[in-house]
């Protein structure tokens, strides 16, 4: 797909996120060399329900992002509920309390735009199922910066609105089903 060495993965998902992520994240192996950043739209008061679930299913370490935390490979970072998660140029994570974007906090656009800034062509952005259009502008920022854009096949997604909007915004994005996305992301960990 690209010759640039990938340094980070960013994933955004909304309605149907839990099922979709359960196909992908547990497939990533122990010792996976990249950090994986995940924004899922969850209600503000429903914090941390995702963490125990994915901690029990994933081979990679799963944790909630902390402010100014240096990112490590081999770790899946979930955005905390009611905070945006951003990437700083030095590769640290940052949180923000700014107003919701696309009615969402955390917002996928906020993560993807800051990660595209920090990583440029070394970023893979993945938009999964969802019923709104958060992530579309973010995925465009990923492709504009030369990064790799992947969108879950809208025809197979639990909710197609978010993948459709992402494809409209980032025409060069690759369309894959969940299984193919899992295989592709896993391969990024071995072909190095």
């Amino acid at each position: 797909m690209t010759r640039t060495t990938i340094k980070a993965i960013a994933i955004g998902a909304s309605a149907g996120a839990v099922q979709a992520l359960q196909v992908i994240l547990p497939r990533l192996p122990v010792g996976y060399p990249l950090p994986v950043l995940v924004v899922v739209h969850v209600p503000p008061d429903r914090s941390n329900v995702l963490l125990p679930l994915f901690q029990s299913k994933c081979r990679m370490r799963v944790k909630e992002a902390e402010d100014k935390e240096p990112m490590d490979g081999g770790v899946i970072y979930f955005a905390p509920s009611d905070y945006h998660m951003l990437v700083e140029a030095d590769g640290a994570l940052a949180l923000s309390n700014d107003e919701p974007v696309n009615y969402s906090r955390p917002s996928i656009d906020v993560l993807f735009e800051s990660a595209a800034d920090a990583y440029g062509p070394a970023l893979v952005g993945v938009i999964l199922t969802g019923a709104n259009n958060d992530g579309a502008a973010g995925l465009k920022a990923v492709t504009d910066a030369g990064g790799v854009a992947i969108v879950e096949d809208p025809a197979q997604a639990y909710a197609s609105a978010m993948p459709d909007a992402a494809l409209d915004a980032a025409a060069t994005a690759k369309v894959m089903n969940l299984d193919a996305i899992a295989s592709y992301l896993s391969s990024l960990g071995t072909a190095r």
């Binding site: 100014k68 140029a89 735009e113 800051s114």
Partner: peptide, 9 residues
């Protein structure tokens, strides 16, 4: 200030 947020703003 943390640059990523300042840039958004």
């Amino acid at each position: 200030y943390a640059r990523a947020s300042i840039k958004r703003r």
